[in-house]
Every structure is written in C-alpha cells, then in structure tokens.
C-alpha cells in the first residue's frame, strides 16, 4: 500500500487551522506550567514548617531586604486568578474557529 499522500505545502488557510489545533493542544500544558509556578516561590523553603515569620504582614509591596520575596495569599491569589483569566480569554478566542474547522476540514491522517 502506498503511503498516504500528504501535500508538502498546504494552503495558507489550512496551514493556519492546523497551527490553531496545535495551539489548542499546547494551551492546557501552558496553563499547567503557569499554575505550578507558585511552587517555585516555595522551592527553597520547607513547606511543612510554614515560614510564617518570613512573610511581611504589612503588605507584600514593602518587602524587607534579605528576606525571601514571596507573595502572600492576596497577591498569590491575584496571580492565580490572572493566569486563569488569560486561559479563559485564550480558550474563548480559539473556541469558535476550532469548532468551525471541525466540520469540512479533516484532521491529518483522516480520509481525504
């Protein structure tokens, strides 16, 4: 059986759509990585001991020099919800073209 014939160069539109599908697959990975970033803030600390003494109680902005710079619940929350917002916006931007492309355009490897 001959190998499936794939054109080397795709039409611009088809090419864009394929890359969009790639982006849709990458998005959750990106989201996971970004959501795991806060773990790096705690990388040098023993999580169990709970380094309450290092966190400034009077607002995260005025961090004393020498102490590990680490956001508290308020700013950490802002980071998490910020990433979340970006994910929602990205998913919303991709949703329509993706669901449109599903109809007539076949996936690679599909029957032509």
């Amino acid at each position: 059986m001959a190998p499936p014939r794939e054109p080397v160069f795709l039409e611009r539109q088809t090419y864009r759509r394929r890359r969009l599908m790639d982006a849709a697959r990458v998005l959750p990975v990106l989201g996971a990585v970004l959501f795991m970033v806060p773990m790096l803030w705690f990388a040098g600390l023993d999580a169990r001991s709970g380094p309450a003494e290092t966190a400034p109680m009077d607002g995260g902005a005025a961090v004393t020099a020498g102490a590990p710079e680490r956001p508290g619940t308020a700013n950490g929350g802002l980071y998490v919800f910020g990433v979340w917002t970006l994910l929602i916006l990205a998913a919303a931007a991709m949703a329509r073209p993706l669901s449109r492309s599903e109809g007539p355009v076949e996936r690679p490897g599909g029957p032509r």
Partner: peptide
Amino acid sequence: IHAMIEASPIADWQMEQGRWVTLT
C-alpha cells in the same frame, strides 16, 4: 478586601507543593 486578606490569619500562603500538584 486586599488589605483584609493581608491582615488575616491566612495572609501567609502556606503551600504544600505535593498537595498543590496532586490535588490539581
């Protein structure tokens, strides 16, 4: 509310990395 959170008993983010990853 930002100020209230900063002043609350849970102001410090006590992350347990293992739980953070596992629970997600």
